[in-house]
Design a protein around this nucleic acid. Structure first.
Lengths: 184, 184
DNA sequence: GCATCACTATTCACTATGTGTATAGTGACG
DNA sequence: CGTCACTATACACATAGTGAATAGTGATGC
């Protein structure tokens, strides 16, 4: 439960309530997908059920009740273990483009697959340009620049693969050598 | 439901039963995580409920009953739509290492974060060596070589980021300039 | 003075996806 | 002829995330 660990991480600094946690999260982890409120409360409930956090008090400050949570010792221990462990570099690496292109070949023909790959490349290039723009804009805060760097590096890795796949499928389409219906 | 689409893709070629689909999947999509049998049957049930596939017959060949499914017209249409659409290049790119390093800074100090980053880099390098070995082994089938290529490209992107982050955090640790507790 | 709006804060029912275990039939092997 | 490996499925469960509803407060306009 990685979202859980993130919330626990934010709680490490002191007690907070759900609404506040959502705000803190979105502010600190720019570039990551914003948390939905619903998810915050759902996750807090699950953490509480596991005994990693506990509700300390119900405050009332200018508005509706707020339930303040804080880390328990068990929570702090679990969090420490999580921080100490590496994110296991996925033993299985799903290549969604290869998967889809392969299915395009199963469903249709090389043309369908190649049409998909070109569309995908175009979409990637668009996103790439967007991140590049963000990155070169001098008013972009450093944290967002770094998020963009990460995104660009991975988009670039995808693009390389897409190019190779397109080359291979084009070779299939002008078939000097046709031996495989699987480009993964 | 991407697993659903993959199964439908495999069904596009003709009727099959669950057990067979699992085998076909794992064989065709090497490098991807193998499907659990449970998931295959669960997904088939869900696809049937949506009207995308239907059970055509219950065979019996040397063993227990097998239920053969085939695509319906609705299923074929949905599959075609899925193949035609690009995988939207995630508008939000989660950087799990940045997240964890940031939380390490919240929970502990720069030392904890830097310890984590070094461990993570080591784990990535290990995996990298493994893929490289697979790739250079002449007996590795082409499909696995390509899967390895994709994996390596992304591991490499991660490693670049990890290096940068380590540089930054080391600079923090020998603090000439300390202004941020957030390296994301 | 009151309608309405924006903001704070939470709840709940629901969907989607995946897991783990139990069950059951068949042939092969010693 | 017991048990082992393989084929095949079902079912209850866990986990993560979604979307709409509810409710309190203060500010703003008229």
């Amino acid at each position: 439960m990685s979202t859980g660990h993130v919330l626990m991480g934010l709680l490490a600094a002191g007690g907070r309530h759900g609404y506040d946690l959502k705000k803190a999260h979105d502010e600190r982890f720019v570039g990551a997908r914003p948390l939905a409120f619903g998810q915050v409360y759902a996750t807090l409930e699950r953490l509480q059920k596991k005994g990693f956090i506990e509700a300390v008090e119900i405050e009332r400050v200018d508005g509706p009740d707020r339930t303040v949570y804080r880390l328990t010792d068990a929570g702090r221990a679990d969090l420490a273990a999580w921080v100490g462990d590496v994110e296991p570099p996925a033993p299985f690496v799903a290549n969604p483009f290869a998967t889809k292109a392969t299915i395009a070949l199963l469903v249709g023909d090389a043309d369908l697959a190649s049409r998909y790959l070109r569309k995908q490349r175009a979409a990637h290039l668009d996103r790439m340009r967007e991140y590049t723009r963000v990155k070169t804009d001098p008013s972009t805060p450093m944290s967002e620049v770094l998020a963009a760097d990460y995104a660009i590096a991975h988009l670039d890795a995808d693009l390389r693969w897409l190019e190779t796949a397109l080359d291979r499928i084009t070779a299939l389409h002008h078939p000097l050598t046709t031996e495989s219906d699987d480009i993964s």
